[in-house]
């Protein structure tokens, strides 16, 4: 029983990372109409920036600086590489562009920081267990879940109540009308892209504290995030979070009984969902097609 709880909780932590990634991917997908294959790259950038800056800024400073760095690089990428492609409606081109970026980022990370894994130091106080029975619930893991909860709630409030959030939501429904109402949609899309990269960077820093840093960490986290979006339903941000948590926990539980299938089970869930509910759990009719 304890083993099951242990694995389920591990899965939940994984699911949190998937959810953060999927949330950023879904934002970029819905407003920028870009399947951001480089999303794992922004995760890696966030993580390695935090690792490099931690000696100067401390853990908490790095936790903020890493994601911000990823967002700034995201802004630059959006402005100079993605923006020229908005006028081509076929998603093929942005898909290939970000695919190339993913290769470049992973390769340069390997050149700059080395191919072997690096440890990310977290404060000792966070390493201790919260409870002696449930030894696997360390302070850091609670922190990961807590930060994610705060970020998701904050994002929800932002999209619900602020002017920027309302414009982003309106833009996903009908960008042309939003534009004709006098909103600068280029700026809107740029900010949205950066926001997505910020979430990826945050996922990277948080994941680094548990999994350590390796150059391919981004490409191993991005595929489950795609699945999270498909399971949750393309076009639904709540769905992206829900999908991430579901597949994370499912993979964790599978580890208890049949470890070899823990990766494949994610994709099996996707197939089952696609057969039963072709648009995903919370997907909307007709969006993105």
């Amino acid at each position: 029983m304890q083993l099951l709880l242990f694995n389920a909780f591990n899965g939940l932590i994984q699911g949190v990372f998937y959810a953060l990634m999927a949330l950023g991917l879904a934002l970029i997908l819905s407003l920028n109409s870009v399947i951001n294959m480089a999303h794992g790259g922004f995760l890696v950038i966030g993580a390695y920036l935090a690792y490099t800056l931690a000696p100067y800024l401390g853990f908490w400073g790095a936790l903020v600086a890493g994601p911000l760095g990823a967002a700034v690089i995201g802004l630059v990428v959006e402005r100079f590489l993605v923006r020229p492609l908005y006028k081509r409606p076929d998603p093929l081109y942005t898909l290939l562009l970000t695919f190339g970026l993913a290769l470049i980022i992973e390769d340069l990370t390997r050149t700059i920081w080395g191919a072997q894994g690096l440890p990310f130091q977290i404060p000792d106080i966070l390493n201790s267990s919260v409870s002696s029975v449930l030894f696997f619930i360390t302070g850091y893991r609670v922190l990961v879940v807590g930060i994610t909860l705060l970020v998701v709630l904050g994002l929800w409030a932002m999209l619900r109540y602020t002017r920027l959030g309302i414009r982003i939501r309106a833009g996903t429904l009908d960008l042309e009308t939003v534009s004709s109402l006098g909103v600068n949609i280029y700026l809107l899309r740029a900010l949205n892209f950066a926001l997505g990269c910020l979430l990826a960077g945050l996922a990277g820093v948080l994941a680094a504290g548990i999994l350590g840093l390796t150059p391919p960490m981004g490409s191993s986290l991005i595929m489950p995030s795609f699945v999270a979006i498909i399971v949750g339903g393309v076009g639904s941000l709540v769905g992206a979070v829900l999908g991430g948590l579901i597949i994370g926990v499912a993979a964790g539980i599978t580890t208890t009984y049949y470890p070899a299938a823990s990766d494949a089970v994610i994709y099996l869930i996707m197939l089952v969902v696609l057969v039963l509910r072709p648009r995903g759990l919370l997907g909307q009719e007709g969006l993105f097609e």
Partner: peptide, 25 residues
């Protein structure tokens, strides 16, 4: 029945299913 972005994403994910089967089995 899927189009555009959805078509691409589902085909990506289906591809990875077989990748993991090959790695784990």
């Amino acid at each position: 029945r899927r189009r555009g972005i959805y078509f691409a994403m589902i085909t990506i994910a289906i591809g990875q299913l077989f990748y993991f089967i090959a790695v784990r089995w």
